Amino acid sequence: MKEMTAKEVENRLAEGECPLIIDVREVEEVREGKIPGAVNIPLGLVEFRMHELDKSKEYIIVCRSGGRSARASQFLEEHGYQVINMAGGMLAWEGKTE
């Protein structure tokens, strides 16, 4: 499984890239702030909503600390999706939130 630090994700955004970010935290957690542009698909719904994702695109998967996003990344990778787990999750995020 590929991994990327929160700083690397922040740098991509700062450079004008628009990475596709999936936040697998629960709705209540996301209300406290998420990475701008991230789409919320709670971990328990990933299996049922993965058809909304495009296998030809790469997604960065985020959660609170990196555990749930690692599980989601592994699951999606097993189903043919291109994913990168953001190590450390939102606890490591120092960039802007919305």
Rank of each mutant, 00 (worst) to 15 (best):
47 E>A: 15
98 E>C: 15
16 G>F: 04
62 V>D: 03
61 I>H: 01
47 E>Q: 14
84 I>K: 09
31 R>G: 06
4 M>L: 11
62 V>C: 11
68 R>T: 08
78 E>R: 11
16 G>Y: 03
96 K>S: 15
97 T>C: 15
1 M>L: 08
20 L>N: 03
61 I>Y: 01
28 E>G: 01
36 P>A: 11
25 R>P: 11
13 L>I: 14
22 I>M: 02
55 K>W: 07
69 S>F: 09
89 G>S: 12
95 G>A: 10
30 V>M: 08
89 G>H: 12
26 E>Q: 14
53 L>S: 05
67 G>M: 08
79 H>Y: 14
67 G>Y: 02
80 G>S: 08
22 I>R: 00
80 G>L: 07
47 E>C: 09
47 E>I: 08
28 E>P: 03
64 R>V: 13
82 Q>C: 11
66 G>L: 03
4 M>Y: 06
52 E>W: 13
87 A>M: 12
1 M>E: 04
51 H>P: 04
46 V>P: 04
52 E>D: 15
19 P>T: 03
98 E>F: 15
11 N>F: 00
23 D>Q: 03
77 E>D: 13
64 R>W: 10
98 E>D: 15
76 L>P: 05
56 S>M: 12
41 I>P: 06
91 L>F: 13
9 V>K: 02
21 I>Y: 04
46 V>I: 15
70 A>R: 10
52 E>C: 10
19 P>K: 03
4 M>I: 10
10 E>M: 00
51 H>Q: 14
70 A>I: 01
66 G>S: 07
79 H>E: 06
23 D>V: 09
65 S>G: 14
50 M>T: 03
50 M>S: 08
8 E>Y: 00
7 K>P: 00
54 D>P: 12
95 G>D: 11
5 T>R: 01
52 E>G: 08
26 E>S: 09
76 L>I: 00
85 N>P: 09
43 L>C: 09
37 G>L: 06
92 A>R: 15
89 G>E: 10
2 K>D: 05
60 I>Q: 06
71 R>I: 12
56 S>R: 14
68 R>Q: 14
26 E>P: 06
14 A>K: 12
46 V>T: 03
85 N>Y: 12
40 N>E: 05
17 E>H: 09
67 G>P: 02
85 N>R: 10
35 I>N: 03
27 V>G: 00
56 S>F: 10
35 I>W: 04
8 E>C: 00
78 E>A: 12
66 G>K: 03
25 R>H: 10
72 A>C: 05
11 N>S: 07
95 G>T: 10
2 K>H: 07
19 P>N: 02
58 E>S: 13
88 G>S: 14
